[in-house]
Design a protein around this nucleic acid. Sequence first.
DNA 1: GTCTATAATCGGATAGAC
DNA 2: GTCTATCCGATTATAGAC
Lengths: 203, 203
Amino acid sequence: MRTVDPARFRARRRHIVDAAAALFAAKGFERTTTAEICRAAGMSSGNLFHYFRNKRAIFHAVFEEDGEEKARRLEEARSRDDPWEGLLEIVDLLAVPATEPLAPPLVMEAMVQAYRDSELEELLSRDSAAEHAAIASVLRKASAAGRTDPGLDPDHAASWVMALIASLYTSAATDPSFTPSEQLPMLRLILRRFLLDGREHRK
Amino acid sequence: MRTVDPARFRARRRHIVDAAAALFAAKGFERTTTAEICRAAGMSSGNLFHYFRNKRAIFHAVFEEDGEEKARRLEEARSRDDPWEGLLEIVDLLAVPATEPLAPPLVMEAMVQAYRDSELEELLSRDSAAEHAAIASVLRKASAAGRTDPGLDPDHAASWVMALIASLYTSAATDPSFTPSEQLPMLRLILRRFLLDGREHRK
DNA sequence: GTCTATAATCGGATAGAC
DNA sequence: GTCTATCCGATTATAGAC
């Protein structure tokens, strides 16, 4: 007979993380106080620290997605017969979250924090390494099939594809008139022209 | 007979700003303490606050460039006969500072701070509005001359040109293997393909 | 102009009762 | 599991001497 219900524990942590994420997005990590998180989550300080070792652990939890599901979807896209279909699927997979209002400022905050927090940096670079590998893989396939500019190095090009997707987040966070959902078509256009260099897109 | 030498006062402020910039780049705004700035600048706290109203004013000063010189160079590029020459000149003007090691982390920090600091936000958006106007201007000229894809809206395209340049800073700040100076050719390639869509670049 | 000293506040985190 | 109470340290900024 155990005294803690793991599901309830996880749900409670999730409740805290959700409350904190909105604050981190609006004010950044340092300027968000634990007292504010307590208020937003409706609990005392003593209780908050029962669920998280410290403030930083709450921030990390915001970015701990289960890679399970994502890895599955990346693998699915990467194994498509048509590499361009696979690429566009990956782009959507990575770009669509940018349409959630909290995501752009949170991603920006994560990027600057990762610069000084090696644990977070490792967390994020694990994710981005998986994304990079998937993109490079479809690019290699497309290149071999003559469906992209063969002069491009797939790994190098993949880095720029990721940079372009990241622009969706940074632009949304810095320019109020920039709406990721409206900009997705332009992102796809730039990618096509970059990678195709005048080649025909369709088979 | 005045007791303060304005030139000396400005030099002293500059000395403080230089010392602070390195700290802001390494640790961010909030985690840099005024005590650290004092140590780095070799002066006492009382003296530091003789030159700056508060810590935030020091941070702002890091980004107060004289727009004089920059406006002149933008205007010069914009008035080139060949709009592509003008565009590439502007791109270099904006991209080359990314090769200074402190610039990428400082720019990232400025972007996240601007999100919560309307004064800084105005400072930065004044700059970027001028840049956007210059880029849109050369793109309009290029489009009219049939030297870029006429289907692109110059203002919209200019925003993406700026986003691509910004990628140089964000990528450098988040990916240790990314070197802006090495990536400049690729940036230019992407811009050409994006804006030309198969058209010939040279006249 | 520059210093020392310190005021005033706020922050994260813990102890321990219930 | 949750709370109240509180500690300790750090931080920005100021007062006032030299």
